[in-house]
């Protein structure tokens, strides 16, 4: 089967709350796709609809081209980790995986394999109720890998892991994608996906805000900005202002802002300026022509977190306002 998740026009209301408002995206094989948005953006609901746990009011969700509920032995098609706590605490880790295996016609040997793969070997015969959140996440990953599925869908898998576990999880996600699987990983923290996800689906208020490659997203957020480190701030600002182009800077909390005509320069109160709209060479030339000393000029590269905040800032704001008028205004 095709290793894809196709979500098309999902809508769902819980009472008066709109959980999904036309959610559409496709997860492709061979890469980790980040599924990012603030809490309450509809990530978990989307995943529950994909797994057939919740019914959407409208729209379709297909796994490998088929609705989840029509899959025979679904764990061999999709491995999912929705809620690491969703197990009976009195049962041992191994027995939890054992009943899951039996539900799919999978043998006992595979159970022991995945237990070793996630590093739970020594704890396999302990009750899962006594596990830390990190160990439960590992058990959840073991359950997701049980059927060796071409599609994986993990809700906040890094949650509760210790630093070593985070590194392990990132490596695992990358290697699963490298094997050609489609891997969808949700997170409310974009920084968790830095270096792991090649593609991101950013959601807010039940719909997709951006569906783009990580490289493209960062490029767009970086703009054509140049960071200038100089001890002579005033002279630098004056020199750049003379170029008669829009110069804006926003490093941290701007403590002083100079406006001259249509030129705006803001600094962070230290010796750093960020200039938009000018190529690096032009900045260097202007500074040199005016004999302004500087210690560093570099193209600014936005972090994934910055790019995400640019995208969702507005969405979160309207969510906080929480009014129908606000939602209308956003449309």
């Amino acid at each position: 089967m095709r290793a894809t998740i196709e979500v098309n026009g999902l809508r769902k209301r819980f009472g008066s709350t709109v959980a999904l408002d036309g959610m559409s995206f496709t997860v492709r094989p061979g890469q980790v796709t980040g599924f990012v948005g603030p809490n309450g953006a509809g990530k978990s609901t989307t995943m529950r609809v994909v797994l057939g746990l919740d019914a959407a009011d409208e729209g379709t969700a297909l796994v490998g081209g088929r609705p989840y509920r029509s899959l025979r032995d679904p764990l061999s098609h999709v491995g999912a980790l929705l809620d690491a706590a969703a197990l009976q605490p009195s049962r041992t880790a191994r027995n939890h995986l054992l009943w899951l295996a039996h539900s799919q016609g999978i043998g006992t040997r595979r159970v022991d394999e995945v237990i070793e793969q996630v590093g739970l070997g020594p704890a396999a015969r302990r009750r899962a109720g006594g596990f830390s959140l990190g160990m439960r996440q590992r058990l959840g990953i073991a359950a997701a890998l049980l059927g060796d599925p071409p599609v994986l869908m993990l809700d906040e898998p890094v949650n509760g892991l210790d630093p070593e576990g985070v590194v392990w999880m990132r490596g695992l996600l990358r290697s699963l994608a490298a094997e050609g699987r489609a891997v969808l990983v949700s997170s409310h923290l974009m920084s968790e996906l830095e270096g792991t996800a090649a593609h991101v689906v950013v959601v807010g208020r039940g719909r997709v805000v951006a569906d783009t490659s990580v490289a493209g997203l960062i490029e767009a957020a970086s703009g054509r900005r140049v960071r200038v480190r100089t001890a002579a701030r005033e002279r630098a600002i004056a020199a750049l202002a003379r170029a008669d182009v829009a110069v804006a800077a926003d490093v941290g909390v701007a403590s002083d802002v100079t406006v001259a005509g249509d030129v705006t320069v803001a600094g962070d109160g230290n010796d750093m300026l960020v200039v938009s709209g000018l190529p690096t060479e032009r900045v260097v030339a202007l500074l040199n022509a005016n004999a302004v000393p500087f210690s560093e000029v570099a193209a600014h590269r936005a972090t994934l977190e910055e790019a995400y905040m640019n995208l969702t800032g507005e969405v979160v704001e309207f969510r906080a306002a929480g009014t129908a008028a606000g939602r209308e205004a956003a449309r």
Binding site: L51, L82, L87, P89, A143
Partner: peptide, 9 residues
């Protein structure tokens, strides 16, 4: 415990 979701998945 929420395991029903694991079961129905």
């Amino acid at each position: 415990t929420g395991m029903i979701r694991t079961t129905l998945t």
